[in-house]
Amino acid sequence: MQERTASAAGGAPPSTAGNAPELLPKQFGKYTLLSKLSSGGMAEIFLALHRSSFGFEKLVVIKRILPSMNQDPSLIDMLLHEARVAATLSHPNVVQTFDAGQVDRTYFIAMEHIHGEDVGSIVREAAERDPGGIPLEHALSVILGVCAGLAYIHDKRGLDGTPLGIVHRDISPRNVVVSYTGDVKIVDFGIARSGLGDVEEQKENVLMGKFAYMAPEHVAGDRIDHRADIFAAGVVLFEMTTGKRLFKGGTQMRTLLQIHGSEYPLPSSIKPGYPKGLEKIVLRALEKRREDRYQSAREMHAAIEELIRDERIPVSPMGLTAWMESLFRDKLARHKEALLGVRQLIDVIAARSSAGRWR
């Protein structure tokens, strides 16, 4: 059984086999690559600056096919399909795609830069700071954003009103990012399924996505729909609110068997005092039969909002912002210092580029 993901941020270490490391900052078309964020799978991801001649500046993220794979038509098709899907989306809880194209025969996508952390990093940092992990109100604020983003994605229609049938297929802590200002964003549509013309359907013995967040029907090889994303959101909610991984079998096969065959642990068995109303929501999202789950992300969103009202849980976007800034205060300071440090290099690159044009 193989696990297949188009994510360049899937945890694989950067590979430099056969290639000398790039010297950064570096000009890449109209963008300046500042630093490499991750590399693995089919692509590498960079933090970049887009600067116009009128003083406009914007940080973006560049997803670029790995040089060793840039001649693979199937990978190019996957990247362009990701761009087509993402370009149709415009929602506060979904990462925005600005541009796609080719520079020096290398295909890329330019996306919104989210100055923040993925949920996996937040869970780890919170656990180190406090045995209680993520405060409940902030975990619920994050999952509300996930549900709102999924509701938009699943309901998205084309210009002619035809449902696009988008299924993300890779909802996981790594693909939910929370900005330091409290914005929640779903990222990475590299293996999304849609009615825009999938370049690669599921094949025998190939599973698309991260094993530990796959729905039982996905594991069984059945064709999946939007309810697979709801199951994955339930896993993320379980892990944020208990501080423990739900499916971690030691091997890929054991993880799949846990999802498909085992009884799932109750959140209250892991974390004493776990709210009964929240446990009910988690368990419904994690129903093995998709017919028994929430039938839409909108329905799950409404259930969480009702819990917040009934239990008077102090969910607040401003509160999430303050907590994120506090949790990552040191990292924010280092990032600001590092960004200031490359400004002079960027100016030098821009000056050289401009001089070259006027020769």
Rank of each mutant, 00 (worst) to 15 (best):
K271W: 04
S269P: 04
G197W: 09
H260E: 14
K276S: 14
L196A: 04
V187N: 03
A192P: 09
F238N: 05
T242H: 07
Y274N: 03
Y213N: 01
V219H: 01
D198M: 15
K248Y: 14
S194M: 10
G197I: 09
G277V: 02
V235D: 06
K271A: 09
M253S: 11
G273P: 09
H218R: 08
A228D: 06
T255L: 00
K244H: 15
R223T: 14
D183N: 13
M214P: 03
P267E: 08
R245S: 12
E263W: 06
T251F: 00
V235G: 04
G249T: 00
T241N: 07
A192Y: 07
F247Y: 13
V199P: 04
K244C: 10
V235Q: 05
V177T: 12
T241H: 06
L237D: 02
M214L: 14
F231L: 01
L278H: 03
M208H: 12
H260A: 15
V199M: 10
G221F: 05
K248A: 15
I259G: 04
L278N: 00
Y180S: 02
K271S: 09
V187D: 03
T255D: 02
D225G: 12
G209A: 04
T181C: 07
V235H: 05
M214F: 07
I259W: 08
A228M: 08
V235C: 10
N205M: 12
H260F: 14
G261C: 13
G221I: 07
L237A: 05
D222H: 13
V176A: 00
G243W: 10
G221T: 11
G197Q: 07
H226G: 14
